[in-house]
Amino acid sequence: MIWFILRRAGAASIVLFLASVMIFLGIRALPGDPAVAMAGEEATPEAVAAIRAQYGLDQPLPVQYADYVTQTLTGNLGRSTQDKLPVADILAQRLPVTLELAAIAIVIAVTIGLLAGIVAAVQSGRFFDYVANAIGLVGLSVPHFWLGLLAILLFSVTLRWLPASGYVPFSEDPAGNLQRMLLPAVVLGTGFAAALMRQTRSAMLGALTADYVRTARSKGLSERKVVAVHALRNSLTTVVTVLGLQLGVLISGAVVTEQIFVIPGFGKLTVDAVLTRNYPVIQAVVLVVVVGYVLINLLVDIAYAALNPRIRFGGGADG
């Protein structure tokens, strides 16, 4: 198991290296000379050259890259062109907001999606199954922005149960924070829950007709144990896959959701940075997303191995 994790981590670091090269080159491929832009239209060639030397832009690309990696690893992501704040500080402020939002959304989605999927499979062809499938289809089809607006209209404007927008840090006002996070988290988690429900249902339907489930029943185990231990354990691989894939969707969903609910998170930071061509921030945002993706995939791979002994032991008598 240790070797398996090390192998996967090695592969992940190769991906990270390649991604960092692409981010580095991507920024350099953008039109315009940053030294000219910084020096201004009227600057003399000597002034431009001085700026080039100051920022190391006259060095060969490999040297520049090495410098970029060193700076990034030491936490120096540059300064925002808008407010001149260090990008690292901005990320440290914005990222936890989105992580909290995503965490609540995931908890809601996994709870609802997993339970509904299991029950729908057990009750397949009956009333609950039809209702869950119908709601699931709607949940998958409805875009975040529309669902967000609808939720604000119903729960904030009409019923006045929850605030329509805004953000309070958890450390200042835990209740107020959760109150404001609930609606966006539900909106963000809806599609996730629907996708998870459908995948869990189909995986469980397959597992429930498997021979080993028949064996479990022939042992006299209770139906709950048959479903929750024997069938579910083998369906979890599918669930983990969906989880990994949907976390990517969650990032794009967070961008839209934070925009609607005016939450100062990572998603809103991204949108604002793109609109103001704030390159250092964009560069950092892309890096964070890439690292996030790679880490999630690494975790998914490790989860597969934990769930499936055939992966852990690298095949057996018959592969």
């Binding site: 498997a210 021979d211 080993y212 028949r214 064996t215 479990a216 022939s218 024997h230 354990r233 083998n234 769930l307 499936n308 002994p309 055939r310 018959d318």
Partner: peptide
């Protein structure tokens, strides 16, 4: 059962 390959739970 007939199928020893699938009658035991792989997990």
């Amino acid at each position: 059962f007939q199928e020893p390959m699938t009658s035991l739970n792989p997990s």
